[in-house]
């Protein structure tokens, strides 16, 4: 009896000391993660605090306080002096339309090309795929000038030639110009192809025997199975489009066509309203935050490149 009780007590003791040991073992990792998080989140915190300061806080001696002293929500909402008074709604709308179209475009082009690379046999397939991958190595800055010239050329044609001008399509100061270079990417093709390759070949064979052609197989078999990968691509594409700066700056001059990033930057240039600019930054950021929180698992899965399945 006592021997049994003693054994149980020992077991409990060793179990709790095991918990402590486990925590101790993880301590360095957690410390590192916390430090990194603080470093990453600090600028965001500063922006959030500054967006609530009154303008006077920036005009006095020394650095502005790192703690919101006054909570001036008017920076966001007051008519005549808040963000809501700038065309921020218009900016957000522009950003949203641009990002949505880019996302849809990438989903469509990447699904089709990834299907071809994953399942079809055609001469030059591997060479072509390598070429697709190579485009991932080309930084935006390299292609931006030729792309811009292409847009100018297109715009000139569409405005000057009668048989095109009736369409009212604009490549400068218009959505077509904002989205065109980003509708198809090597990254999207690569991401989806890697996932499609994990789909058992027999599923496609079975569909083929049942009389499903490529497009139907894509819609009824491959896309439903690749939902997770499609979601990952969608969120990456949307985030990237939303955060673009250089390209929208280049192809838009009309304030009405500004995206939120540019609009806010223009606002910030107006130094007398720096607190409002900070509020605008937060507003530009909030939709992203919501998106990331909502689709976190697809982001993580995308980063791990299919090695983690869920």
């Amino acid at each position: 009896m006592t021997a049994v009780a003693g054994a149980t007590a020992r077991k409990n003791a060793s179990r709790s000391s095991g918990v402590v040991r486990r925590w101790l073992r993880r301590l360095p990792a957690y410390t590192l993660l916390i430090v990194c998080s603080v470093i990453l989140l600090f600028p965001l915190y500063v922006t959030a605090v500054f967006s609530l300061h009154p303008l006077t806080e920036f005009l006095k001696e020394g650095a502005p306080s790192l703690w919101p002293s006054f909570w001036q929500w008017d920076n966001y909402f007051a008519s005549g002096e808040g963000v809501s008074d700038t065309p921020v709604g218009r900016y957000l709308f522009n950003s949203f339309v641009m990002s949505t179209v880019i996302t849809l475009g990438q989903l469509i082009t990447a699904t089709l090309s990834a299907y071809a690379f994953a399942f079809l046999k055609f001469p030059g397939r591997n060479a072509l795929f390598v070429a697709f991958l190579a485009t991932m190595m080309v930084p935006l800055e390299v292609s931006i000038i030729p792309n811009f010239q292409t847009m100018q050329w297109l715009d000139a044609h569409f405005t000057e030639q009668a048989w095109l001008s009736w369409t009212h399509i604009r490549f400068i100061d218009g959505f077509p110009g904002l989205v065109a270079p980003f509708l198809a990417t090597g990254f999207g093709t690569f991401l989806l192809r890697q996932y499609f390759m994990t789909i058992p070949r027999e599923l496609l064979d079975a569909a083929e025997m049942d009389g499903y052609g490529h497009l139907r197989t894509l819609i009824h078999v491959v896309m439903p199975l690749g939902k997770g990968a499609l979601a990952t691509l969608a969120i990456f594409a949307f985030l990237q489009a939303w955060n673009q700066y250089l390209w929208p700056l280049l192809v838009t001059n009309d304030p009405n066509m500004r995206t939120v990033q540019i609009g806010i930057a223009a606002e910030a240039a107006n130094i007398s309203r720096i607190n409002v600019a900070f509020a605008g930054t937060i507003m530009a950021f909030l939709p992203m935050l919501l998106l990331v929180v909502a689709f976190q698992r697809y982001l993580v899965r995308g980063l791990f490149g299919g090695s983690v399945k869920g």
Binding site: E202, D205, E208, M209, D210, V221, L225
Partner: peptide, 16 residues
């Protein structure tokens, strides 16, 4: 394949 009037049962079942 679809016009050969045959059906196949795959080794790994190939269910969707």
């Amino acid at each position: 394949a679809k016009d050969r009037d045959l059906a196949m049962v795959f080794q790994n079942y190939a269910l969707y």
